[in-house]
Design a binder for these strands. Sequence first.
DNA 1: GGGCCCTCTTGGC
DNA 2: TTCCAGCCAAGAGGGCCC
Length: 690
Amino acid sequence: MENEKSVSGTDSARPWQSYHTAYTNAKAGMEKVDKEKVQRIVYEMSKGSKYFENEEKKEAYMKQKIENMRVQWSKLTASDLNHFQKIADKRIVELEGTRDLSRIWLHVDMDAFYAAVETLCNPSLKGKPMAVGGMSMISTANYEARKFGVRAAMPGFIALKLCPGLIFVPTDFKKYTHYSDLTREVFKKYDPNFLAASLDEAYLDITSVGNERSMTAGDVAEELRESIHKETGLTCSAGVAPNRMLAKVCSDINKPNGQFVLPNDRMAVMTFISSLPIRKVGGIGKVTEHVLKDVFEITTCEGMLQKSSFLCGLFSPTTADFFLSVGLGLGRTDTPQATLRKSISNERTFSATKDKALLYKKLVDLADMLSNDMKKEGLCGRTLTLKLKTSSFEVRTRAVTLPTYTCSSEDILKHASKLLKAELPASVRLMGLRMSNFNEGQNGVSLDPKQKTLSEFMVTGDASGRKLGDQVPSHSNDNDDSLSVDTETSFSADTWDSIGLLGTHEILYLHHSDSMLCLKKEETKRNLDLRIDDLENNVDYHNTVANAINPCPNGASQLVERDSSPGKLKESNQDRGKNAINSGDGEAGSSLNPNRPLLWMNDYKCSLCGAELPPNFLEERQEHFDFHLAERLQEEESSGVNQTPKLEQRLKHKSHIMSQIGQRKKHKTSASQDKYIPIDMFFAKTSQNF
DNA sequence: GGGCCCTCTTGGC
DNA sequence: TTCCAGCCAAGAGGGCCC
């Protein structure tokens, strides 16, 4: 409470002191920065903005959280505390039993990596304050700029205010990846199984190399750093310790171009940890630091052990275990297996807008990007999450779990549109899409036999279960370097096998005309744009497919009656539902109206007769469609309307297609039992001939 | 009550 | 002049369903 009083006591005179956004954890090279001046400038430049208001909201939330915890703490009785102390003591003994001092870990961190690479490529930048990034956000600042308080993740316009002579250099990931690759070639010589944490950081188990070459850990680190400098011209810092958590802390101690070795000795570890500020530990950020400090007065790792009963009493067992491990200086010492990716996403910030059409356009782009990224990595997922950031910086996420795995932009867009529609109207400044809940096979191997969408089929294979990828050598990636995607922060430690499929990344698409049809990517987008209205009307892609192969009698694309409002559409659909297939007299109830297309309304109801068939009843749907088509043909013949040739032609065309499908299928799969092949598959196969 | 799903928060880089 | 990112993972808590 005293701490809080002192803060609030200065609030009125120096309000920026309580604005924690600007300056929460000094980076290397910022020790001599006039912290108060930086805080004041950042505060003044941010004040009144929507961003600032949101930060204040978050601050208030954090304070509330701290207050709640204080209340909970005050409710703990002596008996409770005694109980939790016993639990904590037991847990400490158990955790201590897991201590492993047999390995020596080295953490390498390149010094101001992006900025250093840029300076290397343009020596005129040397000695001048420089930041990589732009006016909206900077990625890295060199040490000259850091002296002014400029740092990563700071908006450029604020950085410029702090350092008026600041030079901005745009990011060039290609360049950074190249230099990152060079460093990794060096890392491999010391630990072939090194863990890349990002483009500029890595963990190496140097136990073996030290033993084999009878070198001390410090010598190994020295040699490795020299080698990095020789190969790249860049400097790095290193930390050596018995585990990765400590090694990371150590690499920061003598930055830049320095190293620190913590001996593999329990006493040395405990001494080191005793005065280590909790914020230096990976996993403890701004919020956790405040909670521990304000509620329990824990500022050093040692404090975690001193307040162990409270931690066990007020946090979940998982969180309490983490805190106790920190207090004991424990960390991971094993070399983990490459973990599989859990999700894939993309998001874009833009000028805040309420324009529905513009927002849908953004969604189309995101769906396209996500689909392409998924195909590149051979992933199919089931849970789609839409992320929105409103103009007031409020972040919303909305998710939906689909019945089948997918990676197709059509599927993604279809479901994302529904999620977005439910959130509108809203003023949005960021939109993102994430796919998670991948099929276990990864690499696009569907575990769901019902997976039938166009793009999925292309990736996953045909109905026989044979992967298309089987036809080409599977590209196994031993080196995780090449797996990095073009962002600074992607987790390159993950190793993926990828199949060399769809190298051209063409997307097949169904053209809205009688003829068959395969469009390339550039056309896809245009068509998706055209169909935004349809998506909003809950007309799904099954309809598109149905219309493509069995187009509307007038030959035009007709997903819905163009002049129908959603309300009207619903109404007419209901009307149709009242009419049985054979009731066909009168315009309203007739399934024979040549101007009316067959649609699966809301993905289950026939627009002509109201019959209900779930989306996965593909064969039944096809038969149902055939019925209507034959019905229409019969009517045209009997009425003498001169449309017969057209319809007959279409039937003939379809018959021809189906026979081709059969032949192709037979050719590809030795034993084809299916008399019907899903339309998605057909197009996937047909497309192979284009 | 357990499992699953969704939402939100936190944290790292 | 310019006005606060984009990616990933993990944990917690609440709602719903069987």
